[in-house]
Design a protein around this nucleic acid. Sequence first.
DNA 1: ATCTCTGCAAAAAATTTGCACAAGG
DNA 2: CCTTGTGCAAATTTTTTGCAGAGAT
Lengths: 138, 138
Amino acid sequence: MMAMKSTRIVKEIKDRGFKITPQRQLVAEALEGNKTHPTVEDLYKEVAKIAPTISVATIYKTLNELVEIGAIQRLDVGDRKAHFDPDTTPHNHFVCLRCGTIYDIPETGKVNEIPELPDFKVLRSQTIYYGYCKKCKG
Amino acid sequence: MMAMKSTRIVKEIKDRGFKITPQRQLVAEALEGNKTHPTVEDLYKEVAKIAPTISVATIYKTLNELVEIGAIQRLDVGDRKAHFDPDTTPHNHFVCLRCGTIYDIPETGKVNEIPELPDFKVLRSQTIYYGYCKKCKG
DNA sequence: ATCTCTGCAAAAAATTTGCACAAGG
DNA sequence: CCTTGTGCAAATTTTTTGCAGAGAT
Protein backbone atom coordinates (compact mmCIF):
# COMPACT_ATOMS: atom_id res chain seq x y z
CA MET A 1 0.00 0.00 0.00
CA MET A 2 1.26 3.43 -0.84
CA ALA A 3 0.87 6.74 0.89
CA MET A 4 -2.39 8.23 -0.37
CA LYS A 5 -1.96 11.97 -0.45
CA SER A 6 -5.34 13.54 -1.07
CA THR A 7 -4.79 16.19 -3.69
CA ARG A 8 -7.42 18.27 -5.44
CA ILE A 9 -7.25 16.06 -8.53
CA VAL A 10 -7.55 12.88 -6.46
CA LYS A 11 -10.63 14.36 -4.87
CA GLU A 12 -12.17 15.07 -8.25
CA ILE A 13 -11.51 11.50 -9.34
CA LYS A 14 -13.30 10.21 -6.25
CA ASP A 15 -16.18 12.62 -6.65
CA ARG A 16 -16.78 11.28 -10.12
CA GLY A 17 -16.96 7.73 -8.81
CA PHE A 18 -13.68 6.55 -10.28
CA LYS A 19 -11.48 4.34 -8.15
CA ILE A 20 -8.28 5.69 -6.70
CA THR A 21 -5.70 3.26 -7.99
CA PRO A 22 -1.97 3.61 -7.41
CA GLN A 23 -1.59 4.55 -11.09
CA ARG A 24 -4.20 7.30 -10.97
CA GLN A 25 -2.80 8.50 -7.68
CA LEU A 26 0.64 8.85 -9.21
CA VAL A 27 -0.56 10.62 -12.35
CA ALA A 28 -2.61 12.96 -10.18
CA GLU A 29 0.37 13.69 -7.95
CA ALA A 30 2.64 14.28 -10.93
CA LEU A 31 0.19 16.87 -12.23
CA GLU A 32 -0.86 18.57 -9.02
CA GLY A 33 0.61 22.05 -8.97
CA ASN A 34 2.74 21.24 -12.00
CA LYS A 35 3.51 24.40 -13.97
CA THR A 36 5.60 22.75 -16.68
CA HIS A 37 2.74 21.74 -18.99
CA PRO A 38 4.05 18.19 -19.37
CA THR A 39 3.42 15.90 -22.31
CA VAL A 40 2.31 12.29 -22.02
CA GLU A 41 5.92 11.23 -22.33
CA ASP A 42 7.02 13.60 -19.57
CA LEU A 43 4.40 12.21 -17.24
CA TYR A 44 5.14 8.64 -18.21
CA LYS A 45 8.82 9.07 -17.37
CA GLU A 46 7.99 10.81 -14.12
CA VAL A 47 5.51 8.22 -12.93
CA ALA A 48 7.63 5.31 -14.14
CA LYS A 49 10.32 6.32 -11.65
CA ILE A 50 8.00 5.15 -8.90
CA ALA A 51 5.93 2.55 -10.75
CA PRO A 52 8.21 1.14 -13.43
CA THR A 53 5.62 -1.34 -14.74
CA ILE A 54 3.01 1.26 -15.60
CA SER A 55 2.13 1.37 -19.28
CA VAL A 56 1.76 4.38 -21.54
CA ALA A 57 -1.77 3.28 -22.35
CA THR A 58 -2.72 3.71 -18.71
CA ILE A 59 -1.27 7.21 -18.72
CA TYR A 60 -3.29 8.06 -21.82
CA LYS A 61 -6.46 6.58 -20.38
CA THR A 62 -6.02 8.38 -17.09
CA LEU A 63 -5.29 11.71 -18.74
CA ASN A 64 -8.31 11.40 -21.01
CA GLU A 65 -10.48 10.68 -17.97
CA LEU A 66 -9.08 13.65 -16.10
CA VAL A 67 -9.75 15.93 -19.04
CA GLU A 68 -13.27 14.55 -19.42
CA ILE A 69 -14.17 15.21 -15.82
CA GLY A 70 -12.62 18.66 -16.07
CA ALA A 71 -9.94 18.06 -13.44
CA ILE A 72 -7.19 19.13 -15.84
CA GLN A 73 -7.04 20.68 -19.28
CA ARG A 74 -5.44 19.67 -22.52
CA LEU A 75 -3.29 22.24 -24.23
CA ASP A 76 -2.40 22.21 -27.90
CA VAL A 77 0.32 24.64 -28.80
CA GLY A 78 1.25 23.43 -32.26
CA ASP A 79 4.04 20.95 -31.58
CA ARG A 80 1.71 18.07 -32.35
CA LYS A 81 1.92 16.76 -28.79
CA ALA A 82 -0.76 17.12 -26.16
CA HIS A 83 0.30 19.06 -23.10
CA PHE A 84 -1.58 18.92 -19.81
CA ASP A 85 -2.29 21.64 -17.32
CA PRO A 86 -3.75 21.02 -13.86
CA ASP A 87 -4.71 24.68 -13.65
CA THR A 88 -8.21 24.97 -15.04
CA THR A 89 -8.79 28.54 -13.91
CA PRO A 90 -8.80 31.24 -16.62
CA HIS A 91 -5.27 32.00 -17.68
CA ASN A 92 -3.29 32.14 -20.88
CA HIS A 93 -0.09 30.69 -22.27
CA PHE A 94 3.04 31.90 -23.95
CA VAL A 95 4.97 29.49 -26.16
CA CYS A 96 8.61 30.16 -26.94
CA LEU A 97 9.24 29.45 -30.60
CA ARG A 98 12.87 28.66 -29.93
CA CYS A 99 12.99 26.50 -26.80
CA GLY A 100 9.39 25.38 -26.77
CA THR A 101 8.83 26.24 -23.13
CA ILE A 102 5.24 27.02 -22.24
CA TYR A 103 4.74 29.80 -19.70
CA ASP A 104 1.60 30.72 -17.82
CA ILE A 105 0.35 34.22 -18.48
CA PRO A 106 -2.07 35.60 -15.94
CA GLU A 107 -5.39 36.67 -17.38
CA THR A 108 -5.59 40.34 -18.10
CA GLY A 109 -9.33 40.64 -17.78
CA LYS A 110 -9.50 42.07 -21.27
CA VAL A 111 -8.18 39.09 -23.10
CA ASN A 112 -10.21 36.54 -21.25
CA GLU A 113 -13.43 38.37 -21.75
CA ILE A 114 -15.71 36.24 -23.83
CA PRO A 115 -17.50 38.32 -26.42
CA GLU A 116 -21.19 37.85 -27.02
CA LEU A 117 -21.34 35.75 -30.11
CA PRO A 118 -24.94 35.63 -31.26
CA ASP A 119 -24.85 32.26 -33.00
CA PHE A 120 -22.62 30.47 -30.53
CA LYS A 121 -22.75 29.20 -27.00
CA VAL A 122 -19.22 29.87 -25.80
CA LEU A 123 -18.08 27.66 -22.93
CA ARG A 124 -14.43 28.56 -22.65
CA SER A 125 -11.63 30.29 -24.47
CA GLN A 126 -7.92 29.91 -24.76
CA THR A 127 -5.33 32.43 -25.87
CA ILE A 128 -1.83 31.43 -26.81
CA TYR A 129 0.96 33.94 -27.41
CA TYR A 130 3.90 32.98 -29.59
CA GLY A 131 7.31 34.57 -29.53
CA TYR A 132 10.62 34.40 -27.73
CA CYS A 133 11.14 34.11 -24.01
CA LYS A 134 13.71 35.98 -21.95
CA LYS A 135 16.29 33.19 -22.25
CA CYS A 136 15.92 32.99 -26.03
CA LYS A 137 15.34 36.52 -27.25
CA GLY A 138 18.88 37.74 -26.50
CA MET B 1 0.16 22.88 -69.16
CA MET B 2 -2.53 24.03 -66.82
CA ALA B 3 -4.24 27.35 -66.32
CA MET B 4 -2.05 29.34 -63.95
CA LYS B 5 -4.32 31.48 -61.88
CA SER B 6 -2.18 33.92 -59.96
CA THR B 7 -3.51 33.97 -56.47
CA ARG B 8 -2.05 35.75 -53.45
CA ILE B 9 -0.53 32.51 -52.18
CA VAL B 10 1.00 31.72 -55.56
CA LYS B 11 2.53 35.16 -55.53
CA GLU B 12 4.06 34.59 -52.12
CA ILE B 13 5.53 31.31 -53.30
CA LYS B 14 7.14 33.08 -56.26
CA ASP B 15 8.40 35.95 -54.12
CA ARG B 16 10.23 33.49 -51.93
CA GLY B 17 11.96 31.96 -54.91
CA PHE B 18 10.10 28.66 -54.90
CA LYS B 19 9.00 27.25 -58.21
CA ILE B 20 5.37 27.25 -59.18
CA THR B 21 4.70 23.62 -59.91
CA PRO B 22 1.29 22.21 -60.80
CA GLN B 23 1.13 20.62 -57.33
CA ARG B 24 1.88 23.84 -55.49
CA GLN B 25 -0.49 25.69 -57.76
CA LEU B 26 -3.30 23.30 -56.87
CA VAL B 27 -2.65 23.37 -53.15
CA ALA B 28 -2.52 27.16 -53.29
CA GLU B 29 -5.79 27.31 -55.21
CA ALA B 30 -7.46 24.90 -52.82
CA LEU B 31 -6.51 27.16 -49.93
CA GLU B 32 -7.07 30.59 -51.46
CA GLY B 33 -10.12 32.13 -49.85
CA ASN B 34 -10.96 28.84 -48.18
CA LYS B 35 -12.89 29.47 -44.96
CA THR B 36 -13.31 25.80 -43.98
CA HIS B 37 -9.99 25.37 -42.16
CA PRO B 38 -9.18 22.14 -43.99
CA THR B 39 -6.94 19.36 -42.74
CA VAL B 40 -4.21 17.73 -44.78
CA GLU B 41 -6.62 14.97 -45.69
CA ASP B 42 -9.26 17.44 -46.83
CA LEU B 43 -6.76 19.17 -49.07
CA TYR B 44 -5.36 15.90 -50.36
CA LYS B 45 -8.83 14.73 -51.42
CA GLU B 46 -9.60 18.08 -52.98
CA VAL B 47 -6.40 18.31 -54.98
CA ALA B 48 -6.46 14.63 -55.92
CA LYS B 49 -9.68 15.23 -57.86
CA ILE B 50 -7.62 17.18 -60.37
CA ALA B 51 -4.21 15.55 -59.94
CA PRO B 52 -4.89 11.96 -58.87
CA THR B 53 -1.23 10.98 -58.74
CA ILE B 54 -0.23 13.59 -56.19
CA SER B 55 1.11 12.13 -52.97
CA VAL B 56 0.26 13.07 -49.40
CA ALA B 57 3.93 13.74 -48.77
CA THR B 58 3.84 16.51 -51.35
CA ILE B 59 0.82 18.04 -49.67
CA TYR B 60 2.63 17.97 -46.32
CA LYS B 61 5.79 19.44 -47.79
CA THR B 62 3.91 22.18 -49.58
CA LEU B 63 1.87 23.09 -46.52
CA ASN B 64 4.94 23.22 -44.33
CA GLU B 65 6.60 25.51 -46.83
CA LEU B 66 3.58 27.77 -46.99
CA VAL B 67 3.48 28.02 -43.21
CA GLU B 68 7.21 28.75 -43.07
CA ILE B 69 6.99 31.61 -45.52
CA GLY B 70 3.96 32.93 -43.69
CA ALA B 71 1.57 32.58 -46.61
CA ILE B 72 -0.88 30.55 -44.53
CA GLN B 73 -1.21 29.60 -40.89
CA ARG B 74 -1.45 26.34 -39.04
CA LEU B 75 -4.28 25.98 -36.60
CA ASP B 76 -4.36 23.49 -33.75
CA VAL B 77 -7.74 23.19 -32.14
CA GLY B 78 -7.30 20.01 -30.11
CA ASP B 79 -8.48 17.30 -32.49
CA ARG B 80 -4.91 16.18 -33.08
CA LYS B 81 -5.03 17.18 -36.72
CA ALA B 82 -3.43 20.24 -38.23
CA HIS B 83 -5.85 22.65 -39.86
CA PHE B 84 -4.79 25.31 -42.31
CA ASP B 85 -6.03 28.84 -42.76
CA PRO B 86 -5.08 31.06 -45.68
CA ASP B 87 -6.20 34.10 -43.70
CA THR B 88 -3.16 35.34 -41.80
CA THR B 89 -4.72 38.61 -40.69
CA PRO B 90 -5.62 38.90 -36.99
CA HIS B 91 -8.81 37.00 -36.29
CA ASN B 92 -9.97 34.32 -33.92
CA HIS B 93 -11.66 30.95 -34.12
CA PHE B 94 -14.60 29.20 -32.61
CA VAL B 95 -14.61 25.41 -32.43
CA CYS B 96 -17.87 23.53 -32.04
CA LEU B 97 -17.39 20.74 -29.54
CA ARG B 98 -20.15 18.70 -31.12
CA CYS B 99 -19.67 18.93 -34.89
CA GLY B 100 -16.05 20.07 -34.92
CA THR B 101 -16.69 22.92 -37.34
CA ILE B 102 -14.23 25.79 -37.04
CA TYR B 103 -15.70 29.26 -37.52
CA ASP B 104 -13.86 32.53 -38.03
CA ILE B 105 -14.51 35.11 -35.36
CA PRO B 106 -13.62 38.67 -36.27
CA GLU B 107 -11.16 40.29 -33.95
CA THR B 108 -12.76 42.41 -31.29
CA GLY B 109 -9.83 44.71 -30.77
CA LYS B 110 -9.80 43.83 -27.10
CA VAL B 111 -9.06 40.17 -27.45
CA ASN B 112 -6.34 40.56 -30.01
CA GLU B 113 -4.55 43.20 -28.05
CA ILE B 114 -1.17 41.88 -27.12
CA PRO B 115 -0.32 42.75 -23.55
CA GLU B 116 3.10 44.05 -22.63
CA LEU B 117 4.86 41.03 -21.24
CA PRO B 118 8.17 42.23 -19.81
CA ASP B 119 10.10 38.99 -20.19
CA PHE B 120 8.74 38.00 -23.57
CA LYS B 121 8.91 39.17 -27.13
CA VAL B 122 5.40 38.44 -28.36
CA LEU B 123 5.11 37.97 -32.11
CA ARG B 124 1.53 36.83 -32.47
CA SER B 125 -1.41 35.52 -30.55
CA GLN B 126 -4.24 33.17 -31.18
CA THR B 127 -7.53 32.86 -29.34
CA ILE B 128 -9.79 29.86 -29.70
CA TYR B 129 -13.30 29.72 -28.30
CA TYR B 130 -14.91 26.39 -27.54
CA GLY B 131 -18.62 25.70 -27.27
CA TYR B 132 -21.60 24.85 -29.43
CA CYS B 133 -22.55 26.43 -32.71
CA LYS B 134 -26.03 27.44 -33.80
CA LYS B 135 -26.69 24.11 -35.51
CA CYS B 136 -25.60 22.10 -32.48
CA LYS B 137 -26.73 24.05 -29.44
CA GLY B 138 -30.46 23.41 -29.99
C1' DA C 1 24.28 19.71 -66.29
C1' DT C 2 22.45 21.27 -62.29
C1' DC C 3 19.27 22.20 -59.05
C1' DT C 4 14.69 21.60 -57.41
C1' DC C 5 10.68 19.04 -56.77
C1' DT C 6 7.71 14.87 -56.80
C1' DG C 7 6.12 10.27 -55.69
C1' DC C 8 6.64 6.19 -53.42
C1' DA C 9 7.48 3.64 -49.65
C1' DA C 10 9.27 3.16 -45.28
C1' DA C 11 9.85 5.11 -40.86
C1' DA C 12 8.68 7.71 -36.99
C1' DA C 13 5.76 9.68 -33.67
C1' DA C 14 1.44 10.04 -31.20
C1' DT C 15 -2.59 7.97 -29.71
C1' DT C 16 -6.22 4.38 -29.40
C1' DT C 17 -8.04 -0.21 -28.94
C1' DG C 18 -8.87 -5.23 -27.71
C1' DC C 19 -8.35 -8.49 -24.64
C1' DA C 20 -6.85 -11.48 -20.83
C1' DC C 21 -5.72 -11.04 -16.34
C1' DA C 22 -5.38 -8.63 -11.69
C1' DA C 23 -7.49 -6.17 -7.82
C1' DG C 24 -10.94 -4.86 -4.79
C1' DG C 25 -15.31 -4.35 -3.04
C1' DC D 1 -18.41 -13.07 -8.19
C1' DC D 2 -18.75 -8.83 -10.66
C1' DT D 3 -17.12 -4.73 -11.99
C1' DT D 4 -13.47 -1.83 -12.93
C1' DG D 5 -8.81 -0.96 -14.11
C1' DT D 6 -4.15 -2.39 -15.82
C1' DG D 7 -0.63 -3.96 -18.98
C1' DC D 8 0.72 -5.59 -23.14
C1' DA D 9 0.70 -5.73 -27.86
C1' DA D 10 -1.28 -4.63 -32.00
C1' DA D 11 -3.58 -1.35 -34.68
C1' DT D 12 -4.64 3.45 -36.19
C1' DT D 13 -3.63 7.90 -37.27
C1' DT D 14 -0.80 11.71 -38.33
C1' DT D 15 3.42 13.36 -39.98
C1' DT D 16 8.26 13.05 -41.57
C1' DT D 17 12.11 11.26 -44.19
C1' DG D 18 15.18 9.09 -47.79
C1' DC D 19 15.92 8.37 -52.17
C1' DA D 20 15.55 7.60 -57.18
C1' DG D 21 13.76 9.58 -60.96
C1' DA D 22 11.25 13.56 -63.44
C1' DG D 23 11.16 18.40 -64.75
C1' DA D 24 12.67 22.81 -65.52
C1' DT D 25 16.11 26.30 -66.37
